[in-house]
Amino acid sequence: MATVSKKRTHRIAGARLKKSSHFAKKVASRAGRFLKKSGHSIKPLGIQLNREESLVVAEALVHPPAPNQVLINAFHAYKQAVAA
């Protein structure tokens, strides 16, 4: 991922950052569009997990737990509600 300095981001947008937050958002939006067009991305897409969180997900994917009773009961209630 390319890092772009604040100064350069604003130069890309063709405007200086002003006090107005509305204007700041407009500048950021224009800079974002430029970066997107040029093949860069401002932030990584998707959900980024650290090592501990990744382990929890991997464990659940390898050994998926059976649905708990609350989930089973809720699904029965749902089936009745949509079939009624």
Binding site: I47, L49, E53, V56, L61, P64, P65, I72, A74, F75
Partner: peptide, 25 residues
Amino acid sequence: RFGFRPLSERRLFLPMATARSLIVS
């Protein structure tokens, strides 16, 4: 309560295999 597990601070997840076994049971 429905078996979702913490993914990160305010994100939770349910494995697709768990959800699938619920639907097909």
